[in-house]
């Protein structure tokens, strides 16, 4: 590909030397990767077919029974549903909102740089820190959210936003929106930078209104960025743990559990390592299926057009 064609300079020993260099360079990374990524994942699969409480040898082989237990567990099934609600909700709320804000900010205006910095701040904070602050804001009695609602005559839920099983998940979703909207805006703004200025000028000459330009030019050209962002958002939502753990711990009444909180509960709290193993395999399979489907159904055309772009730039480089 891009690497220079090497060798062919008549040095025979250099072939061995090269092999040695490759091994030397790649081994540290591969060793680390094998020990801390590959091995634990293989172990997770292995644990999932045993009943194991965390000590002694793996002897109690149970086949697929752990999977049956997990899939028959209402708490787990609910947590899958919660994950899917977060996946759908995040995209459905952040996509239009992020797009609207990005379009509004994509113009010369005073304080633009500062504005972009500020919008990105929540994304940089740790989920834990954002969660702790919001936990205080959402407190039923002295929380400022309820205070503000009260001052405009609205009534807050009695058990608090995080204490009501019907509201807790939506409250978590709202906090997640606050935390991650900035990422969407920044990515969309970056995508907008890639829209050629000439298109706007041409449209303006043709007498297109601002609204028409956004709808016919900007949004379609932003397609690849939006689809990639949605993919990221989806993968992140499927792994959701920190924010839930801080805000609700999965409660009240298991109304906000996610697959990750479920497997941590089973694994480290109840020492049901087999169950946790099965749950993590299921989590991975769900994530994989959704990723592959998304790639096949939605992203495939971008990838194809990408190849074309890359080829074009390469040609340009050669001719230069």
């Amino acid at each position: 590909m891009n690497s220079p064609a090497r060798g062919g300079r008549g040095r025979v020993t250099s072939a061995w030397r090269k092999r040695l260099e490759i091994v030397l360079f790649v081994t540290p990374a591969l060793a680390l990767f094998a020990l801390f990524v590959v091995w634990p994942i293989v172990t997770a699969v292995q644990l999932s077919v045993y009943r194991w409480k965390g000590f002694g040898p793996l002897v109690d082989f149970v086949g697929l029974r752990n999977y049956v237990t997990v899939l028959a567990d209402d708490v787990f099934v609910d947590s899958v549903v919660h994950n899917l609600i977060i996946v759908g909700g995040s995209i459905a709320i952040q996509l239009p909102l992020g797009l609207a804000i990005a379009l509004l900010l994509n113009r010369k205006m005073w304080g633009q740089g500062l504005l972009r910095t500020i919008i990105f701040v929540p994304y940089v904070l740790a989920e834990v820190i954002a969660g702790v602050v919001w936990f205080q804001l959402l407190q039923p009695e002295y929380g400022v959210i309820d205070g503000l609602l009260g001052s405009v005559g609205l009534e807050a839920p009695e058990q608090g936003w995080l204490g009501d099983p019907d509201l807790a998940l939506w409250t978590v979703l709202a906090v997640l929106t606050w935390k991650y909207l900035g990422l969407a805006v920044i990515l969309f703004l970056a995508g907008l930078q890639g829209v050629p200025e000439e298109l706007y000028e041409a449209a303006q000459l043709d007498g297109a209104s601002w609204w028409q330009v956004q709808r016919k030019i900007t949004v379609p050209l932003l397609g690849p960025t939006m689809r990639t962002w949605a993919f990221l958002s989806m993968i992140g939502s499927l792994q959701l743990f920190d924010m839930v753990w801080i805000l609700t711990g999965g409660g009240p009444a298991n109304s906000t559990t996610t697959m990750a909180t479920y497997l941590i509960n089973e694994g480290t709290r109840s020492q049901n390592f087999g169950i946790a193993g099965a749950a993590s395999v299921i989590l991975f399979v769900i994530a994989l299926i959704m990723a592959v489907l998304y790639q096949q159904l939605i992203l495939s055309r971008d990838t194809r057009s990408d190849v074309v772009t890359v080829k074009r730039t390469k040609t340009k480089k050669v001719t230069r």
């Binding site: 990524v37 172990t43 997770a44 993968i235 497997l263 946790a276 989590l283 994530a287 994989l288």
Partner: peptide, 21 residues
């Protein structure tokens, strides 16, 4: 490709065996 495939595995999936390891 080994590294590319590695992108697909979040730490969450391997967290319990990682803890034991």
């Amino acid at each position: 490709m080994v590294f590319v495939v590695g992108l697909l595995f979040p730490a969450t999936v391997a967290i319990v065996p990682l803890f034991i390891l």
